[in-house]
Design a protein around this nucleic acid. Structure first.
Lengths: 223, 223
DNA sequence: ATATAAGAAATTGTATACAATCTCGTATGC
DNA sequence: GCATACGAGATTGTATACAATTTCTTATAT
């Protein structure tokens, strides 16, 4: 992807993560193209890429739609994150340089300091960046590539199934994980990372279909 | 991707895996388009997808080239395969249905029976399919998506850095792994899968750059 | 009034023309 | 002879025109 496409890609991705583009919403090529002042060609390229990352779903001859993860898909995302992040944090314990540890600590501190006076979306962005930094330190580019996509999807999942834990708790977890990495304690770091992810997933509120149908009839019979 | 693009995708991918398209070879859009009787548009889409899977490398304004994995990249691929396949085989132990076990055993038997009287590329195809079947049984679509790409890359890596173990050995490993899955022995299956992958990697012969340079001067000064 | 069919509008899919970029050979100056 | 500059050729990148498909509206028959 060239500079132009990367800009379009970033903007759409951010809009999805920040819920400016909601799940199931159609992304019409012509509209996007006009808003960026380009032809449909680069827009189509970007949408295809986003589809490969599962942030949008392309239906042949119908168009591209913002992804709407099912409970099952959300569960798959978290399972894969647990597998990858547990291994990534272990490798990070082995490989982190002094400079990388410094940068990681800075990210935790930034998260802690900007607790209250910051936008909600900036907060989840920073939280995701912490996880990605560990993937980067782990030194295998697949950790980064895969987790970048999985973390983006996590943001969408959170937007659908309710916010996860308090920001405070997440920061605290990150702080603990950082300490474990700094101490090169693989076992502890892995356990903390795993608990952190389990905690995130447990805070989701899946409304099952029956419940949803029930509330639908409620809506129509109510007034 | 629609039917037309999938056909082009499969053909190019297979050609790379079967070394009909060699590493660093340029894939000129116009040539491919003409050979398939289509315009450059669908070809470009396919090349982009292959680039995302790292089977080809796209250089801006230069074109698409068949990937030529470095030693480092090969190491990353095998590391990620170990991580994913160990987990996948554990989940397969938990989830495999009777039908899936039957299908898996059939694949092993087919491998064993077709030992001698079969094309080399069919053999590695079958070997890859065994690994992918376990990913499928593991029931998380990311196992399949990720391993499909990693296994394709493994084929390219093997073509660059020499064949791995004897087919016989690979079949035997697969047979043992199948037995462990059938017995629902997660620990054993995981160990066998790990050993199998380590064995594959150890059979690669990395020629380091110095050695390569040396042989270059050798070539030019030899006769 | 409802169901069905036809057609108009909107959207995606494909081919093609043109623009931008890179490569490589050739000429020119020193 | 060597380096540099220029230009032709080849290739990718982008916009646009047209084709195919789907969706929505509207007309018509029952």
């Amino acid at each position: 992807m060239n500079a132009k496409e990367i800009e379009i890609y970033d903007k759409i991705k951010q809009a999805i993560i920040q819920q400016k583009l909601l799940p199931n919403m159609q992304l019409v090529e012509k509209e996007i193209a006009e808003s960026f002042g380009v032809s449909r060609t680069p827009v189509r390229n970007v949408l295809r890429r986003l589809a490969y990352e599962r942030l949008v779903k392309i239906i042949a001859n119908r168009g591209a739609f913002v992804t709407s993860s099912s409970k099952r898909e959300a569960t798959e995302v978290f399972e894969m994150r647990r597998i990858l992040e547990v291994e990534a944090v272990k490798k990070a314990c082995q490989l982190a340089t002094a400079e990388q540890l410094f940068e990681l600590e800075q990210m935790v501190e930034e998260e802690e300091n900007s607790h209250l006076h910051i936008d909600y979306y900036d907060a989840i962005q920073m939280s995701g960046d912490f996880h990605l930094k560990i993937a980067e330190i782990a030194g295998n580019s697949y950790f980064y590539q895969y987790l970048e996509d999985l973390i983006s999807l996590t943001h969408v999942i959170i937007s659908i199934y309710g916010k996860t834990q308090e920001e405070k708790d997440a920061c605290l977890h990150h702080r603990h994980i950082f300490h474990a990495i700094k101490k090169r304690d693989e076992q502890l770091a892995a356990e903390l990372a795993l608990e952190h992810l389990i905690d995130m997933e447990e805070h989701l509120q899946f409304r099952d279909k029956n419940q949803f149908s029930a509330s639908l009839t409620e809506i129509f019979n109510n007034n």
